[in-house]
Amino acid sequence: GSPLAQQIKNIHSFIHQAKAAGRMDEVRTLQENLHQLMHEYFQQ
């Protein structure tokens, strides 16, 4: 897949890990990143 698709997959797993660790501030930051990446992805 594209590097962007790979990045989106990575962030999904980072979010999963951050949630499991209870780091909600990190989850929020990652979700904002994910949102931006998704936006770029669909602009392609």
Rank of each mutant, 00 (worst) to 15 (best):
Gln43Glu: 09
Gln31His: 08
Gln44Lys: 10
Ile15Phe: 01
Phe14Trp: 14
Glu26Lys: 05
Val27Ala: 06
Glu32Ser: 08
His12Trp: 15
Asp25Ser: 04
Ala20Asp: 07
Glu26Ser: 03
Pro3Cys: 14
Gly1Ser: 12
Leu30Glu: 01
Leu4Arg: 02
Gln43Pro: 06
Leu37Asn: 00
Arg23Lys: 11
Arg23Tyr: 05
His12Ala: 09
Ser13Asn: 13
Lys19Phe: 13
Asp25Trp: 05
Ala21Gln: 07
Ala5Cys: 15
Lys19Tyr: 12
Val27Cys: 03
Gln43Met: 11
Tyr41Ile: 06
Pro3Met: 14
Ile8Arg: 00
Ala21Met: 05
His35Met: 14
Val27Glu: 01
Tyr41His: 06
Phe42Asn: 08
Thr29Ala: 14
Gly1Val: 13
Val27Gln: 01
Ala18Val: 03
Gln44Phe: 10
Ile15Met: 04
Gln43Ala: 12
Ala20Gln: 10
His39Arg: 13
His39Met: 15
Asn10Gln: 14
Asp25Thr: 04
Glu32Asn: 08
Gln17Tyr: 07
Leu37Phe: 02
Ala18Thr: 01
Val27Gly: 01
His12Thr: 09
Gln36His: 09
His12Glu: 10
Gly1Ala: 11
Tyr41Gly: 02
Gln17Met: 10
Gln44Asn: 11
Gln43Leu: 12
Leu4Ser: 03
Glu26Arg: 04
Leu4Asp: 02
Leu4Met: 05
Gln7Ala: 11
Gln7Val: 09
Ala18Ser: 03
Leu37Glu: 00
Gly1His: 12
Leu30Lys: 01
Arg23Ser: 05
Ser2Leu: 14
Arg28Lys: 12
Leu34Gly: 00
Asn10Ile: 14
Ser13His: 14
Gln7Lys: 10
Tyr41Met: 07
Ala5Arg: 10
Asn10Ser: 08
Lys19Met: 15
Ala20Ser: 07
Gln17Leu: 10
Gln43Asp: 07
Asn33Val: 15
Ser2His: 11
Asn33Cys: 09
Ile11Glu: 00
Ala21Phe: 04
Ser13Pro: 01
Ile11Lys: 01
Asn33Gly: 07
Arg28Met: 09
His16Asn: 12
Ala5Met: 14
Ala5Gln: 09
His35Pro: 00
Ser13Ala: 14
Met24Thr: 08
His35Ala: 15
Gly1Tyr: 03
His12Met: 15
Gln43Cys: 08
Ile8Leu: 05
Thr29Arg: 15
Gly22Met: 04
His35Gly: 05
Gly1Lys: 09
Asn33Pro: 01
Pro3Val: 12
Pro3Gly: 13
Ile11Cys: 05
Thr29Lys: 15
Gln44Ser: 10
Lys19Ser: 06
Gln31Tyr: 14
Gln7Cys: 04
Ser2Phe: 11
Ser13Arg: 15
His39Ser: 11
Lys9Ile: 09
Lys9Gly: 04
Glu26Ile: 12
His12Gly: 03
His16Val: 12
Met24Asp: 09
Gly22Lys: 03
Gln6His: 07
Phe42His: 09
His16Tyr: 09
Glu26Leu: 14
Phe14Lys: 15
Lys9Asp: 05
Gln36Val: 08
Lys19Asn: 06
Asp25Leu: 04
Gln7Trp: 10
Ala20Lys: 10
Gln31Leu: 14
Gln36Met: 10
Gln7Ile: 09
Leu4Val: 05
Ala21Asn: 07
Gln36Glu: 07
Arg28His: 08
Ala21Thr: 05
Met38Val: 07
Gly22His: 05
Glu26Trp: 08
Ala18Lys: 02
Asp25Ala: 04
Ile15Asp: 00
Val27Arg: 00
Thr29Val: 13
Gln44Arg: 07
His16Met: 12
Ala18Phe: 04
Gln17Gly: 04
Leu30Asp: 00
Gln36Trp: 08
Asp25Gln: 05
Tyr41Thr: 03
Leu30Phe: 04
His12Phe: 14
Leu30Cys: 02
Leu4Glu: 02
Val27Asp: 01
Lys19Gln: 13
Met38Trp: 10
His16Ile: 12
Ile11Phe: 06
Gln43Thr: 11
Thr29His: 10
Pro3Ser: 14
Met24His: 12
Ile11Thr: 04
Ile11Asn: 01
Met24Ser: 05
Ala5Asp: 08
Gln17His: 06
His35Ile: 13
Arg23Pro: 01
Met38Ser: 02
Asn33Gln: 15
Glu32His: 10
Ala21Pro: 01
Gln43Tyr: 07
Met38Arg: 03
Gln36Leu: 10
Gln36Lys: 13
Lys19Trp: 13
Leu34Ala: 02
Asn33Phe: 15
Glu26Met: 07
Leu4Lys: 03
His35Asp: 10
Gln43Ile: 08
Gly1Gln: 11
Ser2Met: 13
Asn33Trp: 15
Ile15Tyr: 02
Pro3Asn: 14
Glu40His: 06
Ala20Asn: 07
Leu30Arg: 01
Phe14Leu: 15
